[in-house]
Design a protein around this nucleic acid. Sequence first.
DNA 1: CATGAATGAGAATTCATTCAT
DNA 2: AATGAATGAATTCTCATTCAT
Lengths: 200, 200, 200, 200
Amino acid sequence: MRERQILDAAVEVFSRHGYHSASMDEISEVAGVSKPMIYSYLGAKEDLFAKCIRREAGRLLEAVRDGLRSELPPDMQLWHGLRSFYRFVAEYRDSWTVLHRQALTVGGRFADEITMLRSRAIEVVTALVVTAGMKKGLGDRAEFSGPALAVALVGAAESLADWWLDHSEVSDGVLASWLMNLVWLGFNDLIEGSVWRPEE
Amino acid sequence: MRERQILDAAVEVFSRHGYHSASMDEISEVAGVSKPMIYSYLGAKEDLFAKCIRREAGRLLEAVRDGLRSELPPDMQLWHGLRSFYRFVAEYRDSWTVLHRQALTVGGRFADEITMLRSRAIEVVTALVVTAGMKKGLGDRAEFSGPALAVALVGAAESLADWWLDHSEVSDGVLASWLMNLVWLGFNDLIEGSVWRPEE
Amino acid sequence: MRERQILDAAVEVFSRHGYHSASMDEISEVAGVSKPMIYSYLGAKEDLFAKCIRREAGRLLEAVRDGLRSELPPDMQLWHGLRSFYRFVAEYRDSWTVLHRQALTVGGRFADEITMLRSRAIEVVTALVVTAGMKKGLGDRAEFSGPALAVALVGAAESLADWWLDHSEVSDGVLASWLMNLVWLGFNDLIEGSVWRPEE
Amino acid sequence: MRERQILDAAVEVFSRHGYHSASMDEISEVAGVSKPMIYSYLGAKEDLFAKCIRREAGRLLEAVRDGLRSELPPDMQLWHGLRSFYRFVAEYRDSWTVLHRQALTVGGRFADEITMLRSRAIEVVTALVVTAGMKKGLGDRAEFSGPALAVALVGAAESLADWWLDHSEVSDGVLASWLMNLVWLGFNDLIEGSVWRPEE
DNA sequence: CATGAATGAGAATTCATTCAT
DNA sequence: AATGAATGAATTCTCATTCAT
């Protein structure tokens, strides 16, 4: 459809130049469609960007959700989710760039949309983490905060995703394993009562 | 001094709107100084932004370095470093926003500066991590990559920093502890040979 | 065409105010076209000016060349050339003003273009003068320098052109005749060996 | 005096960059005097330029008048006047540049001042020419117009002056002689009734 | 429906010019 | 008397946005 064609072009261009430096001219050129068409189908630049964000966010979420395999135990779910995430990043670099790099810089409205997306990802992870924690009897301990843990985990995953863009020799499975090893083992320790504490 | 006054205003405005949407008019208004003064003291918009970035990056680095306490063991260094980082973020929200959110969007020159800054942070962390790993006999294991670990850790720290901006009821010490518990324990496990592995 | 419309306006405005004082605003107003159109059709102010200069210089050269009648003897060629020149000046006052008055003031690039144009005119005149001189046996005499003579002649012609703008009751033929009488007769004398010399 | 210092600097700078591109900053720097002083002594930029023009025009006129030697016959007067003119140009290149190149481009007021100066020069020359012509019985002939002749002569002299700036190996005396030979001989022919006429 | 052509509104940047000391 | 510091007022140029065809 026409709409899709335009959105594809827009994502490509926004990813390349960022929201502000991207020009409607370039988008229309890349899309092979005249500017008035863009306005008629998708509205003004801001709307267009919003629609890009939403579509890509949807895709990302869907990809991750599809990979989760909710019949497995939490750690395996997490692992599969991470792999899906990295596969998505690898396959749709532009989408990832737009979501991660560009969307935050516009301020206001988009930052909120992205925050929302991130929140949903974090919620999913939190659920996993908390489920696992509850099951093993980890209550409200000062050394622990489900949401905060999830936030950290998501941040770590994102950061590694960026790093991966320049180190694509590593496989998505290995990348996910690193993260699991980094986080999950520590998490298990916490559950089992061993805690890191400043010694001073 | 006049220069400082202007830089402060610039950081504030850049932090609020991002590089592109920030207008010299608004900066001059916030600084309480006419536009020509800005140009005379700090040059064109790009220069101004560069100077903001550099000043804030310097401050951040200095703050963290001051907090490191290199006489302590690596884990304590990391913990103190993290606390300093979070204190900085708390005290200079705008600085952090500019460095973290806005600097990447201008392209070329600034992205490089920020990447450099981040790289230095990652190097420091890597050094700590690797030192600790070496000391405990962790060689080249597939489950482990010093740099990648550092990247993940930095990402997690950044992500928590953002989260913290909306949850400032937690103290910087607690925040740092969470991260230590998340990462260090898992790290210790790795060293001791216990590894997470997908079971399928 | 739109381009022509704009160039006409530009020549008019540049002629009235000179390059620096002419504002794109005024040009766009005179052209009855919005500023962005100017930029889209003819580029930035400097390009616009360059295109004015080139168009007018081309017209002038063409007008003079068309009038030369190279089948006639040198003096007649000169006379016809002069008439064409004056007719051009009369018909395109603004063109002449821009070429003669304004183009030198921008510096570098344009000064060079104009100097080039003038040089070509001087070369043509020199050729005529020298041809005539050779034919009549005027060698290398201290009292004579072909190029310098041409320079003087061109200067005289230009000066008369300016004067004419305020005395247009005279016909172009008469104007050209004056110049021929002033110069050519003296030139003939030179050839025949009669020389003016300071007597002191 | 302070005033002179400033005017000297102004002439230098105006000559180098032209009226519009010359900045008050540079003038004040070259003059070694602060900008407010310039304003207090000589007024705004336009006034300053006007005063430059007037001073230099005065100098030029004076130099030429001093060289005229009104006790000699017209042709010798002319010759001496020309020599003085060229000597002035050689000695005060900047003055000449400002008067000849820059003053015309500002439009309005200054063009008028320069036109005035030129008119006075032309009047002097006209007087000489007409005197000579009268004395020799040259009445009102169609082939001749005293003022126009003078205009042409002045233009030729100016043009040669410019040429000379790049060919300074020629002496001022030779330059003046060329001009005399070019013009005066022809003038004599006219007086004696030999006339150039288009033959067609 | 689709577009080439057109523009309004706004941003950066630069100076001539003047206070406040 | 003299100046460093400050600014108001332009001016060039760009783009998101919309007619007219």
